[in-house]
Simulated assay, not measured.
Amino acid sequence: MSEVLTLADDGVLIITINRPEAKNAVNRAVAEGVAAAMEELDANDALRVGIIKGAGGTFCSGMDLKAFLTGELPMVKGKGFAGFVESPPKKPLIAAVDGYALAGGMEVAITCDLLVANSKAQFGIPETKRGLAAAAGGLMRLPRQIPPRIAMELALTGDFISAQRGYEIGFVNRVVETPAIDGALELAHKISANGPLAVRVSKQVIVESRGWSDAEMWAKQQEIVGPVMTSQDAREGAAAFAQKRAPNWTGK
Score class of each variant (00 low, 15 high):
Glu72Asn: 11
Thr58Cys: 06
Ile51Ala: 12
Leu69His: 14
Ile52Pro: 10
Ile51Lys: 13
Gly54Asn: 06
Glu39Pro: 10
Gly33Val: 04
Gly99Glu: 00
Leu65Arg: 13
Gly105Thr: 06
Ser61Lys: 13
Lys66Ile: 09
Gly56Tyr: 01
Met106Glu: 02
Ile110Met: 00
Ala96Cys: 00
Gly78Tyr: 05
Phe84Cys: 09
Val34Ile: 15
Val49Tyr: 07
Leu47Arg: 06
Leu102Trp: 07
Ala117Asp: 08
Val34Leu: 15
Val97Arg: 02
Pro89Phe: 11
Ala95Pro: 00
Ser119Glu: 14
Asn44Leu: 08
Leu69Asn: 15
Ala117Pro: 14
Asp113Val: 00
Pro92Trp: 05
Ala117Arg: 01
Gly56Lys: 01
Ala109Pro: 04
Ala103Ile: 02
Glu107Phe: 00
Phe68Thr: 10
Ala95Phe: 02
Gly78Gln: 03
Ala121Tyr: 04
Gly83Glu: 12
Lys53Arg: 11
Leu69Trp: 14
Asp45His: 14
Ser87Thr: 08
Val30Pro: 04
Val116Trp: 04
Gly104Cys: 07
Leu73Trp: 14
Lys53Val: 12
Pro92Thr: 05
Pro88Gln: 04
Ala35Val: 02
Ala67Ser: 08
Val49Thr: 10
Val85Ala: 09
Asp64Glu: 07
Cys112Trp: 06
Leu47Gln: 01
Ala67Gln: 11
Glu39Thr: 12
Leu73Tyr: 12
Val30Phe: 04
Leu114Asp: 13
Ala43Gly: 15
Ser61Gly: 08
Ala46Leu: 10
Asp98Gln: 02
Ala82Cys: 03
Lys77Asn: 13
Phe59Val: 08
Leu69Ser: 15
Lys77Cys: 15
Lys91Val: 10
Cys60Thr: 09
Lys66Arg: 15
Leu102Val: 07
Val116His: 03
Ala37Met: 02
Ala101His: 04
Met75Ser: 14
Ala43Trp: 05
Lys90Leu: 14
Ala82Asn: 03
Ala96Gln: 04
Gly50Glu: 00
Leu65Glu: 15
Ser61Cys: 15
Ala82Ser: 09
Leu114Thr: 09
Val97Tyr: 09
Lys53Met: 12
Thr58Trp: 10
Phe68Lys: 13
Val30Lys: 03
Pro89Glu: 09
Leu115Ser: 02
Ala103Phe: 02
Gly99Trp: 01
Ala67Asp: 07
Ala95Val: 03
Glu40Gly: 14
Ile51His: 12
Met106Ala: 07
Phe81Lys: 07
Pro74Trp: 11
Ala101Thr: 01
Met38Cys: 11
Lys91Tyr: 03
Cys112Thr: 01
Gln122Pro: 05
Cys112Val: 03
Glu72Met: 05
Cys60His: 06
Met75Phe: 13
Pro88Glu: 05
Ser119Cys: 15
Gly57Asp: 03
Lys120Ala: 07
Ser119Lys: 08
Val108Gln: 10
Met106Ser: 00
Asp45Val: 13
Ile110Ala: 06
Ala37Ile: 02
Asp42Lys: 04
Val116Phe: 03
Leu93Ser: 03
Val76Trp: 00
Gly54Lys: 04
Val85Phe: 05
Glu32Phe: 03
Ala55Arg: 07
Phe68Ser: 13
Ala96Glu: 02
